[in-house]
């Protein structure tokens, strides 16, 4: 194995990780502030991807497609929050799980009804396609490098939003004491809608960005959603920093596990058996990571409450 391959895989892991972060940030914010577990977060990811594919198909502009993805996911998020989610804040987690499971069914079948069962394709714009040469002679796709950049930029912006702005102050206050900030005159219902729409927009952005390197299809959101759950379980629910660390850990574990495990088993087994055992174990690697973190620290790396 060459150093170039390793560097490429580390970059792939980072790219996967920052996209997972965009998903996890919304989930963890919504849980931290409203105490809500939202299974339909994956649907917002899907809505972002479909909106981007539709707009890119109609206008040919990738930037417009991204704007559409953000707007569509945020609008869908705000709408769902006002119609359904709002009624769930006082309910137990079981009701939240079921209602948002019902939302997945409605969103998935609704999208299939509008767009059909065939996957759509979202092309990488010409000015971002093709490889770029990194120091050390590594050829790496420009688009994936841009994804890493965008993801890290969003993480930074989100950090500033939470720590430096008035909205961030309210979000943090909402996390620690809901009744008190309502008593201080903050319109808590509007705050909840804004937080939910913000999380939805991040998921939609992730869907559109990843949609350009995968196909855009119904059901694309749920596998990512479950990985995002793993991320926030590892990072600690409610913590943005935990989500970032967890997402990068999961991204790197998944990519490097797929690279190393089959080779590791090839040292002691015949190649075909090593490939199958290695790839089967690689597909389980992130869950083993999660189990390990749980044994060590049941509330996650940065989690405070159970």
């Amino acid at each position: 194995m060459s150093a170039v391959l390793l560097a490429e895989q580390i970059l792939n892991g980072l790219q996967f990780g920052v996209m997972l972060f965009l998903m996890s940030a919304g989930l963890t914010l919504v849980f931290g502030v409203m105490g809500l577990i939202n299974l339909a977060h994956g649907s917002l990811y899907m809505i972002g991807a479909f909106a981007a594919a539709a707009v890119a198909g109609a206008t040919g502009s990738f930037l417009l497609a991204l704007v559409a993805a953000l707007a569509a996911a945020a609008a869908a998020g705000a709408l769902v929050e006002m119609l359904v989610i709002r009624r769930l804040y006082d309910r137990d987690h079981l009701d939240q799980v079921l209602a948002t499971f019902a939302l997945i069914l409605i969103f998935s079948e609704g999208t299939r009804w509008v767009f059909g069962s065939f996957p759509l394709f979202l092309d990488i714009p010409p000015w971002l396609s093709g490889p770029v040469t990194l120091p050390g002679g590594i050829q790496y796709p420009t688009y994936r490098l841009v994804l890493i950049g965008v993801g890290l930029a969003v993480a930074g912006a989100l950090g500033l939003l939470i720590t430096r702005t008035r909205l961030g102050i309210r979000i943090r206050a909402g996390e620690s004491d809901r009744e008190m900030i309502a008593a201080l005159g903050v319109d808590i219902r509007r705050l909840y809608t804004i937080v939910f729409a913000l999380g939805a927009a991040l998921a939609g952005l992730a869907g559109a960005l990843v949609g350009a390197i995968q196909s855009v299809q119904v059901g694309m959101g749920e596998p990512v959603l479950i990985l995002a759950f793993v991320v926030i379980v590892i990072g600690g629910i409610g913590s943005i920093r935990g989500a970032l660390v967890g997402a990068l850990l999961v991204g790197l574990t998944d990519t490097l596990g797929g690279l190393f495990l089959p080779r590791l088993f090839a040292l002691v087994m015949e190649p075909s058996a090593a490939a199958s055992v290695g790839s089967a174990l690689a597909s389980m690697a992130i869950y083993i990571l999660m189990a390990g973190v749980l044994i060590w620290r049941p509330t996650g790396l940065y989690g405070a409450r159970a």
Partner: peptide, 22 residues
């Protein structure tokens, strides 16, 4: 079961998915 509440929901979901990918 080392955890409870929402962690438990997410972790059982993740373990189910682990078997799926396996």
């Amino acid at each position: 079961l080392r955890t409870s509440g929402v962690y438990f929901i997410m972790i059982t979901l993740a373990f189910g998915q682990m078997f799926y990918y396996f």
